[in-house]
Write a protein that binds this DNA or RNA. Sequence first.
DNA 1: ATCCAGGAAAACG
DNA 2: CGTTTTCATGGA
Length: 282
Amino acid sequence: MALLQLQKDQPFSLDLTLSCGQVFRWDKNPDGWWYGVVGNHVIKIRQDGAALSYEGVPERFIRHYFSLDTDLNAITASFDCDPYIHSAIVQCRGLRLVRQPAWECLVSYICATNSNIPMIRRRIATIAQKFGTAIEFEGKHFYTFPDPSSLGDSCPATLSECKLGYRSPYVLGTACDIPDEKKWQQTMVSLPYEQARRELMKLKGVGPKAADCIILFAFQKYEAFPVDVWIRRIMREHYLKTLSEDSALTGWEYDAIRRFARQHFGEHCGYAQEYLYAAREG
DNA sequence: ATCCAGGAAAACG
DNA sequence: CGTTTTCATGGA
């Protein structure tokens, strides 16, 4: 068991960070410990005030994954520009965007379309269980997320057990389009936002929303502003009151919303998006 | 039954 | 070209 002491000027909420909907593979036990699989590691972690207790990975891994070295106060200050976002910032103090493994993030958001969070979590868990590698930890089995070739070579019958519905061929096709996970990841991080977005949208099952989520959560390009039905509702009610009430989100509207957000919240508008999403009330 | 959920592809004018 | 329809799944 290792201990990490957070600094006073380093706000962090493990609970908000792991339960705000950006990740799908973390679970909290009633005793307060979070368990998750990141890459090839099972991580066990809990927070008591400014103290983080953890095991499974070295400290530098924790710092990197949870973005503990980014100046969160500076980031939230950069988009703290109106009363509504201000209240979200106060309400979600300590929420950080984590650095998700890119391939898993990509598949996660292909599986997320027209679906809800519990369903997404179940799909990702089943994919890992069927195609990943088992890791034993505290007598229980955890599963790594399978690499592209493991999924690409999978038999369709087993994949259908993951209940992806019409998303199955998208996941399969994308697995075949990305033979080299590491090379793909390196290429993507080097591209500027708009270019990375266009590249991602070439993949089957990746539209504007999924592309923006992947860019934000896996590549830390904080100018991405994913617009889902919740964000559209919030933006319509508090920022773009001229938007029509019907929930259809056209391509033109999506661009109008993300461009407004980029201008209004600034270069970290993606971070602002996650605060808006986390502070949403049903 | 009907509607909805971190949408996107395919079909249609 | 922009717009509408369809898609599979399960919970409310």
